[in-house]
Amino acid sequence: MKSLEERLDMVNPLVVFQPLTTLEVTNFIGIVAFSIAGSIKGIEKRMDLLGILTLGFSSSLAGGIIADILLGIHPPVNLVYIPYPTVAFLSSLFTFFLYRKITIKNPLLYADALGLGAFTASGASLAYSVDPRPLLVIIVGTVTSVGGGVLRDILANEIPLILTKEFYASASIVGSSVYFLLMLVRFPPGEASILVLFLTFLLRIIAIRFKWELPRIKSI
Rank of each mutant, 00 (worst) to 15 (best):
191 E>P: 00
192 A>I: 08
35 S>E: 03
9 D>Y: 14
134 P>F: 13
213 E>S: 15
187 F>E: 12
36 I>P: 00
144 T>K: 09
99 Y>P: 01
26 T>C: 09
50 L>F: 14
158 E>F: 09
102 I>T: 07
201 F>T: 04
210 F>I: 13
86 T>D: 04
143 V>D: 01
94 F>V: 12
191 E>L: 14
62 A>T: 15
77 V>P: 01
100 R>Q: 10
101 K>E: 10
148 G>T: 06
59 S>Y: 04
29 I>A: 12
218 K>W: 14
157 N>A: 14
28 F>E: 02
188 P>N: 01
184 L>H: 07
110 Y>R: 07
159 I>T: 12
19 P>G: 07
145 S>R: 14
134 P>N: 01
196 V>P: 00
54 T>Y: 10
149 G>S: 10
182 L>Q: 07
82 I>K: 01
3 S>N: 06
57 F>A: 13
54 T>N: 11
3 S>C: 09
195 L>F: 15
59 S>F: 07
112 D>W: 01
185 V>I: 15
111 A>N: 10
42 G>I: 14
207 A>G: 09
173 I>W: 07
84 Y>P: 01
158 E>L: 12
200 T>L: 12
107 P>V: 11
25 V>E: 04
58 S>G: 02
125 S>N: 10
5 E>T: 13
201 F>W: 08
86 T>I: 05
140 V>I: 15
93 L>D: 00
26 T>E: 10
34 F>D: 04
196 V>D: 08
39 S>R: 07
142 T>Q: 10
2 K>S: 08
144 T>E: 04
170 S>A: 14
54 T>R: 08
212 W>A: 09
34 F>C: 08
